[in-house]
Design a protein around this nucleic acid. Structure first.
Length: 865
RNA sequence: GCGGGCGUGGCGGAACUGGUAGACGCAACGGACUUAAAAUCCGUCAGCCGCAAGGCUAUGCCGGUUCGAUUCCGGCCGCCCGCACCA
């Protein structure tokens, strides 16, 4: 008997697959149903990690399974290749971002190929290929023409050392993540995409995504943050010394979700960045100082939590919109955000906690207008906590007696009738700033001309390619310092002009790559016929960390491209699965330094574990189970595992130990378990004698094995369909145990026949999980062709069905025995047998049977007392 | 603070729509093979009582609905994730 040797076997089958080109995508409309399975494409860091192994192994199980089911499968791979790490490498090591990136891609491609994933490599591309980003520039210009792209001055995070804009995620505790310099707010003219135009569509579309996790849909809904309310204008009161400031004679617009509490208004507040505040500051140094004070506060969690409410009374007064006899003071307040609503509010302290804190600090009136049920209007007061619950409106003239919802509608109607404002929907979502002052990204394809302004680059001049001859010896954007690239002529007037030197946020690159995969050679950005066939992606798989940004951007861009006629679907991903991370215990020595797992020896005594250093013998502290990361040194390199145990064992382990949506803890013992499984499995194939054997279902052991094999088909199929890979793998293990219980050695012909059938089924069922081993096993039993091309097994319903059932017998819900009956046995017959069980009879002594509940083929419960 | 999720043996986890709790794996323990070790194979493995048959207690805690609850409902406790001065 030969031991299974993955080192020789695995490369052999990968070569065979490649030679036969078995993963080549079929033609569109080839008669088979289509299935598009996609894993989020990787950033080419240079080497794959266990997270990649898990992600791509999952996608591969689905792809191989669907192929076996007869689907025309599209399973492509590409590279999310633009971004800062390449420039950082350039600055640190003097390499060129392009060379660095393509070298990394080459290395990772080999590693992914070694993983044996069933990818159609002929469709591979990188987002930094000019052929790709040129098409991106083409649709970008079409969206520009459509009005979905615009430029505006915005305040951004500016790193004064690296001389670049940073994304919010790249600012940690107010400092640049790379330079450590304190980040400044700077006003810069930036390019934006009008994602807010699609806010409603993006929320409403979530309802159609019934194969997305609820969690992700909820996160997106909250992120977009739709709220319905009222937008209206306060008029400045000319009495009391207040006069309408220049240019604001038409009033001060505010937004509220609580128009029902208008009569509880105590003051009006504006953000420190509000145009009115800035106008007043220009004439008043005190206001200027106050605004500067407000800006000092940090933006970290703790700082906002504890931030003191600050206010400044402008002395201006406005008239209440529903009762002109009331006037309200206008305050500048630090808790009001300029970029939400109108940057101005009316405050009702009795029913809003922030307003209340502010009113208490500055001695402003607190007038309750919503009476909680059961409270007396004469005695109800608001203390330190605002009342935000339901109730009846009071102290509010014509709104008195209404409930909150009715009063909201009535107040809106009154304001609208008076022409002072109207009902409005406001979103938390902001337009998407896509300008980056970076070299390694997709150039924004426009030209700035002194006479013509912003001019799009004509389509026949695309792509606007990145120049290769750039230097990284100084911080900042190399495109700005390039001697010639910037300087060009205006396509419109022919005069001197300059290229835009900002590049696009790399999230743009990943917002449409799935559509390009449908036809990577198309002249248009998206090949229409192919995209109509392949889209939407049937199953998308990736980490939950992309729940908002990437998945929201991709949904937005898909809708924008649909409106532009480039694609036909509104939603890019019909099914989404978010997989968990790969974790590992982290270890520290006594000095508190992280120690690599390979240097740690674990000792087990009973239930307690201790660790020592493999070389020095010094004690090691076993720490928490955490995401694998270089800084904590708890990383296990996939290539080391492939080398030691083979690719199949590694794939099997990441699929087996935990449910796929949860984190899986990498353990050496665990992967050894998978490795043992591959050997035991192989031994069963290896020990099966060649030859045809006749089935004989009168042989009990043979029939039992056949039944188990046919049931297994259903279990494994369901587990793959339902993304319960761990359960499916457990069933495969279980079946192998059954197979081992009916060994080939010395077996009857009936058992050998049953084994032959079982092995034929088993090879095909394990093929998605351990594809190399499955091929070798298939070849051993003389399967036709390669198992990769074999159809998914079909269960014989007669064999898969149980004809006998073991029903537990309960008395008052406690298990007292069991009864073996034919499937579908009539209730009265089951009752009779159950009541005859000796143990049941013993327990029924001295009590009366009141009722017998028989759940067909499931359980018997006797109610007695 | 708001929103969502999760608590099952020593560990990862299983139990599809309320129907035998602990599948499968890991660890541990006992044994076989071996000069020995590794590998492999066989067995035990929630706790307590019992020679056994069997019984009692158990799915974070307290209640409820039900013939029957890990599963449904209410209230606590703990952990995790997202958002966070969003009017």
């Amino acid at each position: 008997m030969a031991r299974y040797n993955p080192k020789d076997t695995e490369p052999k089958w990968r070569d065979a697959w490649a030679k036969a080109d078995v993963f080549k995508t079929g033609e569109i409309n080839d008669g088979r149903p289509k299935y598009y399975v996609l894993e989020m494409f990787p950033y080419p860091s240079g080497r794959i990690h266990m997270g990649h192994v898990r992600n791509y192994a999952m996608g591969d199980v689905v792809a191989r399974y669907k192929r076996a089911q007869g689907f025309n499968v599209l399973h492509p791979m590409g590279w999310d290749a633009f971004g800062m790490p390449a420039e950082n490498a350039a600055m640190e090591r003097g390499v060129h971002p392009k060379g660095w990136t393509y070298d990394n891609i080459a290395a990772m491609r080999e590693q992914l190929k070694a993983l044996g994933i069933s990818v159609d490599w002929s469709r591979e591309f990188a987002t930094c290929d000019p052929e790709y980003y040129g098409k991106q520039q083409a649709w970008f210009l079409r969206l520009l023409k459509r009005g979905l792209v615009y430029r505006k001055e915005a305040s951004v995070n500016w790193d004064p050392v690296d001389m670049t804009v940073l994304a919010n995620e790249q600012v940690i505790d107010g400092k640049g993540w790379r330079s450590g310099a304190t980040v400044e707010k700077r006003k810069l003219t930036q390019w934006f995409l009008r994602i807010t135009d699609y806010a409603d569509a993006l929320i409403d579309g979530l309802k159609t995504l019934d194969r997305w996790p609820d969690k992700v849909r909820l996160m997106q809904e909250n992120w977009i943050g739709r709220s319905k309310g009222l937008r209206f204008k306060f008029q400045f009161a000319n009495s009391n010394g207040g006069e309408a400031p220049d240019g604001l004679a038409e009033g001060l617009e505010v937004y509220t979700t609580r128009p029902d509490t208008l009569f509880g208004a105590s003051f009006v507040g504006i953000a420190p960045e509000h145009p009115l505040a800035e106008q007043l500051a220009a004439e008043n140094p005190q206001i200027q100082a106050f605004i500067a004070d407000c800006r000092k506060g940090g933006t970290s969690e703790a700082e906002i939590e504890s931030a003191e409410k600050l206010g400044y009374d402008t002395g201006l007064r406005v008239t209440h919109p529903l009762d002109p006899s009331i006037t309200l003071p206008v305050w500048i307040a630090n808790f009001i955000l300029m970029d939400y609503g109108t940057g101005a509010i009316f405050a009702c302290p009795a029913h809003d906690q922030r307003d209340l804190d502010f009113a208490r600090k500055y001695g402003l009136p607190v007038k309750p207008v919503v009476l909680p049920n059961g409270e007396d209007p004469a005695t109800f007061t608001v203390g330190k906590e605002a009342y935000v619950g339901p109730g009846k409106i009071f102290n509010s003239e014509f709104l008195d007696g209404m409930d909150v919802e009715t009063a909201k509608a009535e107040a809106v109607a009154r304001i609208e009738a008076a022409g002072q404002g109207q009902g409005a929907t406001v979103y938390r979502l902001r337009d998407w700033g896509v300008s980056r002052q970076r070299y390694w990204g997709c150039p924004i394809p426009v030209i700035h001309c002194e006479t013509c302004g912003v001019v799009p680059v004509p389509e026949d001049q695309l792509p606007v390619a990145l120049p290769d001859d750039v230097t990284f010896d100084k911080p900042g954007n190399p495109l700005l310092r390039h001697p010639t690239w910037r300087h060009t002529t205006c396509p419109s007037c022919g005069g001197k002009a300059e290229r835009e030197t900002d590049t696009l946020d790399t999230f743009i690159d990943s917002s449409w790559y799935f559509a390009r995969f449908a036809d990577t050679q198309a002249a248009e950005p998206v090949g229409k016929a192919a995209a109509d066939y392949w889209l939407p992606v049937d199953q998308y798989i990736g980490g939950v960390e992309h729940a908002i940004l990437h998945l929201l951007y991709a949904r937005f861009i898909t809708r924008a491209l649909k409106d532009e006629g480039l694609v036909s679907v509104e939603e890019p991903f019909a099914g989404l699965f978010t997989q968990g991370m790969v974790t590992h215990e982290a270890y520290k020595n006594e000095a508190g330094e992280w120690v690599e797992p390979s240097d740690v020896v674990i000792k087990v005594e009973g239930n307690s574990r201790s660790a020592t250093h493999a070389k020095t013998g010094a004690p090691i502290v076993i720490g928490d189970i955490e995401k694998m990361s270089k800084s904590k040194k708890n990383v296990v390199a996939p290539e080391d595992i492939f080398e030691a145990y083979g690719v199949d064992s590694a794939r099997l382990f990441v699929m087996s130990d935990s449910p796929p949506e949860r984190d899986v803890q990498w353990t050496n013992a665990g992967v050894e378990g998978s490795w043992r499984f591959t050997h035991r499995l192989w031994n069963e194939f290896d020990s099966q004698p060649a030859g045809d054997f006749a089935h004989d279902d009168s042989d009990e052991a043979a029939l039992a094995l056949r039944k188990a094999a046919h049931k297994l088909i259903g279990f494994v199929t369901d587990s793959i369909e339902g993304f319960r890979f761990n359960s499916g793998v457990a069933r495969l293990y279980e079946f192998l145990n059954a197979l081992k219980a009916a060994p080939a050695e010395g077996a009857s012909d009936a058992v050998l026949a049953a084994r032959a059938e079982a092995l034929n089924i088993l090879a095909r069922l394990v093929a998605p999980f351990t594809p190399h081993l499955a091929e070798e096993a298939w070849a051993k039993i003389g399967g036709e062709g390669m198992v990769v091309n074999a159809p998914w097994p079909k269960a014989d319903p007669a064999l898969a069905a149980d004809d006998e059932r073991v029903l537990p017998i309960q008395i008052n819900g406690k298990r007292r025995g069991e009864v073996k009956v034919k499937a579908g046995a009539p209730d009265d017959e089951v009752t009779k047998i159950a009541l005859a069980d000796p143990n049941v009879m013993a327990h029924l002594e001295g009590v009366t049977v009141r009722k017998v509940i028989v759940v067909k083929d499931r359980i018997v419960n006797i109610v007695a007392n």
